[in-house]
Simulated scan of single mutants.
Amino acid sequence: MKVSAAMEFLLFLLFLALFGLASAAGLTVDSRDSADWKPTREGRRWRSRAC
């Protein structure tokens, strides 16, 4: 039991380390641009028009 728990913990750490390396290499993107999560196009807010 202790070996499998230790292996699970090590795999979790490896998973986090891989995400950290991918982030440092610029392979990840934060798709949120504000608290309301409205999309932008070239840095400008996209505004929907009412019908």
Rank of each mutant, 00 (worst) to 15 (best):
M1K: 07
M1W: 05
M1Y: 00
M1E: 03
M1C: 03
K2H: 01
K2Y: 03
K2S: 15
K2Q: 14
K2E: 07
K2L: 12
V3P: 03
A5F: 09
A5M: 10
A6D: 04
A6Q: 08
A6W: 09
M7P: 01
M7Q: 15
M7E: 06
F9E: 15
F9G: 09
L10H: 05
L10F: 02
L11M: 09
L11H: 12
L11F: 07
L11K: 10
F12P: 01
F12W: 08
F12M: 00
F12V: 05
F12K: 07
L13Y: 00
L13Q: 08
L13W: 04
L13F: 02
L13P: 00
L14W: 05
F15H: 04
F15S: 03
F15V: 03
L16G: 10
L16C: 15
L16V: 13
L16N: 15
A17V: 07
L18F: 08
L18M: 13
L18R: 08
L18P: 03
F19D: 04
F19P: 00
F19W: 14
F19C: 04
F19H: 12
F19L: 14
G20S: 02
L21F: 11
L21Q: 07
L21K: 00
L21C: 04
A22Q: 07
A22E: 09
S23D: 04
S23V: 08
S23F: 12
A24H: 15
A25N: 15
A25Y: 04
G26F: 10
G26D: 09
G26V: 01
G26C: 01
L27D: 00
L27W: 08
T28V: 05
T28M: 04
T28L: 12
T28F: 02
V29W: 00
V29S: 10
V29P: 01
D30N: 15
S31Q: 14
S31K: 13
S31C: 07
S31D: 13
R32K: 14
D33Q: 14
D33M: 12
D33V: 14
S34G: 15
S34P: 05
S34W: 01
S34T: 06
A35N: 05
A35Y: 14
A35Q: 10
A35I: 14
W37H: 11
W37D: 10
W37A: 09
K38F: 10
K38V: 04
K38N: 10
K38E: 06
P39V: 09
P39L: 13
P39I: 11
T40G: 06
T40D: 01
T40H: 09
T40L: 06
T40S: 03
T40Y: 12
R41N: 06
R41Y: 07
E42M: 06
G43D: 01
G43I: 04
G43V: 04
G43A: 02
G43M: 00
R44A: 12
R44Y: 03
R44H: 13
R45A: 14
R45C: 11
R45E: 14
R45P: 03
W46A: 11
W46Y: 12
R47N: 10
S48V: 06
S48D: 05
S48P: 02
S48L: 13
R49A: 09
R49K: 12
A50D: 11
A50W: 07
A50N: 04
C51N: 13
